[in-house]
Design a protein around this nucleic acid. Structure first.
Length: 661
DNA sequence: AGCCCGTCGGTTTTT
DNA sequence: CCGACGGGCT
């Protein structure tokens, strides 16, 4: 006995002195300090390109090497991709223990908690998650009911304005009335009705057994606050919380973090106040600025040394921030990496811009730069349309991030609706969608059928089929019901899709005469994603929370993974880097977006967005400004280069014009 | 009354 | 490329 004890003691002693990873030589001084932080609350303020991800990864490894059970670590990131990438990289440094860490977004974390305990909230556990357009659809129904009830005449807030109010209220923890006064003062008198629409919306969701994105967060918070048992269990399970991109969390997420930290009090967050770009979604800079105020002893680490970019790129980035009204936490300094001056390129219009970018890409590629090391970034996803056409003619393969997702494409939404009905036969929006695909069924008929379905006692497909057939004799839905019944007996999402297709493909060909082939290809892609899941419910919900981009790589026939160019909105480019970066459509009206032009805070956010774009570049940066973008923008001076390049010293950026031959 | 289908206008950013 | 709108049809 004695012997064994002695042996273990010595091993532990050794372990605390020698780590598998040589942290001291792999990290700089600033990073090392943060990485070695073990217990208690801490915040690391890390500028762009300073190795923020690296810091998180090494801290994760360090915790595990220090003997912390990986199962008790929670890593919250902004996208699921980011979480997975970090876990894979950590596993590469260390070993398989890492796979026990729970990594994901706030939404996916909340979903996993709710799936285990929704009955406490009145939902059944086969609930579906709905996206923004489904939310709007349901709000529009609630809205119509209230309008009819009170015989409201004339203009009224539309569905997206209503959703904005409700969603902001939740995410910012602000009363609806305050938001109404601030954003739509004209409608303050309708406050009661707006609240009534909201409660009607919530009722419809409950009846349909669906949750929107906000519900995931808000119901989790509710659960943790009201259900002692669940809260204790979570506290015991997750002892170490790490949160990435903290500048983009909102008030509600911040409250969740504080709850999750609880008695354990081991929260480690990382962020950069200069990169906050999600305030339209309720993110709050104060969460990061005043983070230490939430705790008695909070350690603060600053990481400023930039490894990513040349000094020339950083000079431009610093200059962009310097002209800001706010003062940000840092000026980046590089490791003395020298390169070319960033270029500001003037183009005649969007077509010339596209030609310039495509040709420069071809030339860089011929000079030995891989396509995967090049990115084209833009403010709004439609800014890349002309470029995409040009890339297609030149047969340059690309992936596009941001903009339309696979799941948002009409035909995939159709397929999804069938699956949702199979998984959750009370789902209003799903029924609505598939019913309206049938002949001679429009809004009205669909609505009354769904009302009838929801009023039924038993929500299983067979019962619904019999009852609806009896009641609505005018319409023949035999084929639809046959397929749904057949599907409801299957487990595998892949097989359900196959079955559903027997019914859907003829409809698809009729609806999308011109491009039905393209759409069938999408559905095949969707099938390959589906085949990775064994359970329909998981497939539906996880897909919605971690959506796959509807990226087009149509021309290059699935060439080398290495040889694909990236097109991306700046929002989706967060955290990533490329050797060569183009920022296109950098003109007033487009960037900053004309809708932000009248609001100081929104303009500041656009400036930070521009800063994020600039700091993605490692070596070469081109900012392109086409003078005639589109005729139709309201009164914005389109010939003007983006204001973010105003008052910048001459030798920071080189102005160029395109010579055509 | 309710459905279908063609046309046209206006595009932020995302879980 | 989607959604709103309206004319014409059942």
């Amino acid at each position: 006995m004695k012997k064994i004890r002695l042996k273990r003691f010595v091993q532990q002693e050794n372990q605390s002195r020698t780590y598998k990873i040589d942290y001291e030589s792999l990290l700089n001084e600033e990073q090392l300090k943060a990485v070695c932080h073990k217990e208690g609350p801490a915040i690391a303020v890390a500028g762009a390109g300073t190795g923020k991800t690296r810091t998180l990864i090494y801290r994760l490894a360090r915790l595990i090497e220090d003997g912390i059970d990986a199962k008790s670590i929670l890593l919250l990131t902004f996208t699921r991709r980011a979480a997975q990438e970090m876990l894979v990289r950590t596993a590469g440094l260390l070993d398989d223990r890492v796979s026990k860490v729970f990594g994901g977004t706030f939404h996916s974390f909340c979903l996993s908690i709710l799936k285990k305990s929704t009955n406490k909230l009145g939902y059944s556990d086969n609930f579906n998650v709905i996206d923004q357009s489904d939310s709007e659809e349901l709000i529009s129904i609630a809205r119509q009911e209230i309008i009819n009830k009170y015989k409201i005449k004339g203009k009224f807030l539309n569905k997206s304005q209503l959703l904005w109010i409700y969603s902001s209220s939740i995410n910012r923890s602000e009363p609806v009335l305050d938001l109404l006064i601030r954003q739509h003062p004209k409608y303050v008198d309708s406050y009661d009705k707006i609240v009534e629409i909201y409660s009607e919306y919530n009722k419809i969701k409950l009846k349909s057994n669906v949750m929107d994105y906000d519900d995931l967060l808000v119901k989790t918070k509710e659960l943790l606050k009201t259900d002692e048992l669940t809260y204790t269990k979570i506290q015991e399970r997750f002892k170490y919380i790490m949160v990435d991109e903290y500048q983009d969390t909102n008030r509600l997420q911040h409250e969740l973090v504080l709850l999750l930290a609880g008695k354990n009090n081991n929260v480690f967050v990382v962020g950069d106040d200069a990169q906050s770009i999600y305030s339209f979604r309720g993110s709050e800079l104060n969460n990061i600025l005043f983070f230490p105020d939430n705790f008695e002893h909070c350690s603060i680490y600053y990481i400023k040394q930039n490894y990513r970019s040349t000094q020339q790129v950083l000079n431009l980035a610093n200059a962009v921030l310097k002209n800001s009204l706010l003062s940000y936490n840092k000026e980046l300094y590089s490791i003395d990496k020298q390169g070319e001056l960033p270029k500001l390129v003037f183009a005649k219009d969007a077509i010339e811009q596209a030609m310039f970018v495509a040709q420069t890409i071809v030339e860089s590629n011929e000079d030995g730069v891989n396509l995967k090391d090049i990115a084209v970034l833009f403010r709004s996803s439609f800014h890349s349309y002309e470029l995409e056409m040009e890339l297609n003619t030149l047969k340059i393969p690309y992936v596009k991030f941001g903009g339309i997702k696979l799941l948002e494409a009409a035909h995939i939404k159709d397929i999804n609706a069938y699956l949702r009905v199979v998984s959750n036969p009370a789902d209003f929006t799903a029924w609505n969608r598939i019913l309206k695909l049938e002949n001679n069924i429009g809004d009205k008929t669909a609505y009354s059928i769904i009302q009838f379905i929801q009023s039924l006692e038993e929500h299983n497909i067979e019962n619904i089929a019999t009852q609806v057939t009896l009641k609505f004799t005018r319409i023949n839905l035999d084929n639809l019901f046959k397929i749904l019944t057949k599907s409801s007996l299957l487990e595998q999402p892949k097989e359900v899709i196959h079955t559903v297709n027997q019914h859907y493909f003829p409809l698809l060909e009729k609806i999308y005469k011109l491009d039905s082939l393209e759409r069938v290809k999408d559905i095949e892609l969707y099938l390959t994603i589906a085949s990775k899941y064994k359970n329909l419910d998981d497939f539906l919900n996880e897909n919605l929370i971690n959506p796959v981009n509807h990226s087009v790589s149509e021309n290059g026939m699935e060439s080398d993974e290495d040889e694909v160019l990236t097109l991306s909105t700046i929002h989706s480019a967060k955290g990533l880097e490329w050797k060569v970066v183009f920022i296109i459509s950098a003109v007033e009206g487009s960037f900053p977006n004309y809708r932000s032009a009248s609001d100081v805070e929104q303009l500041e956010e656009e400036r930070r967005l521009f800063y994020v774009a600039v700091t993605r570049a490692k070596d070469d940066l081109y900012v392109v400004a086409p003078s005639h973008l589109r005729e139709s923008f309201y009164g914005v001076d389109l010939n003007k280069v983006t204001r973010f390049l105003d008052n910048i010293e001459e030798d920071t950026i080189e102005k160029c014009i395109i010579e055509s031959d």
